[in-house]
Amino acid sequence: MPYTAEINRSSPTAFIFVIDQSGSMADAMPGSDPPKKKCDAVADSVNNLLRNLSLRCARPDGVRDYFYVGVIGYGATVGSAYGGSLAGQELVPLSALANSPAKVEERTKKIDDGAGGLIDQKVKFPVWFEPKANGGTPMCQALGLARKWIETWVNLHPSSFPPTVIHITDGESTDSADPTEANRMVGEMMAGLTSITSEDGATLLFNVHVSSKANVKPIAFPSDDSNLPDEYSKMLFAGASPLTDTMHRVANDEHGLGLAPGAKAFTLNGDLTIVVQALDIGTRASNLR
């Protein structure tokens, strides 16, 4: 059965973020409160996922290397988007990542005060990946680089849980002047990525569409494209992997998402925390907050 390989230190898996850093990512994120640029919202989201991965693998003697993580940014340039001492590195073991954020900010989050209200709590927020918005959208080139990293990883870890790629973009590839041709090229690149398989299954591709359109309702893991607002959303939906059985179960049982059979790894302006929570690395208390 695919996607059942145990994830542990001797059989880790890979996580690759592929992030759109084109000029249009400086636009406002629709519906954000307080108002945020899309690139800021995406950077927060990626840093938060990396923080969550580190937390899930934290043990008293350090962070367990269940995951190797890479971040590819694409815009004016294409390449590793880590900052600080990890700058330029490709797939980094999670312990090294946790030990080397570019900086640790102090942020405020709202927490339950136990009496029906919310209070501010100061939290440390590690930053590995800084927001950037500059240049065109060389999506194919970025997906090509991800493919290279994945091929190398799978050759070294043939029986591991297959790599997961989380691709976050606001839209149109500039790989071709003709939008139809650009879409076809991107579709081909995505099919190429998901054709790389370990013995446990095909590479998982999550496409996260950060739409600039006003009044777009967030959509998480749909099973068809009928409610998607444009051709770009539909193209990203088509290229996304089907959710694994475990991810589907966690989404429905633990998050009450009520996903239909055939749900795909696509979100429109959606939250991705579930992707990290749905990876099986052992018992997770249902009352863990």
Binding site: L55, P60, D61, V63, A98, N99, V123, K124, L288
Partner: peptide, 19 residues
């Protein structure tokens, strides 16, 4: 420190508790 975790992580990991 209670653990060998980096300082930013220990605070939150310990605050989440053990189960």
């Amino acid at each position: 420190p209670l653990t060998a975790l980096p300082a930013w992580l220990e605070d939150e990991a310990v605050a989440r508790g053990a189960f």
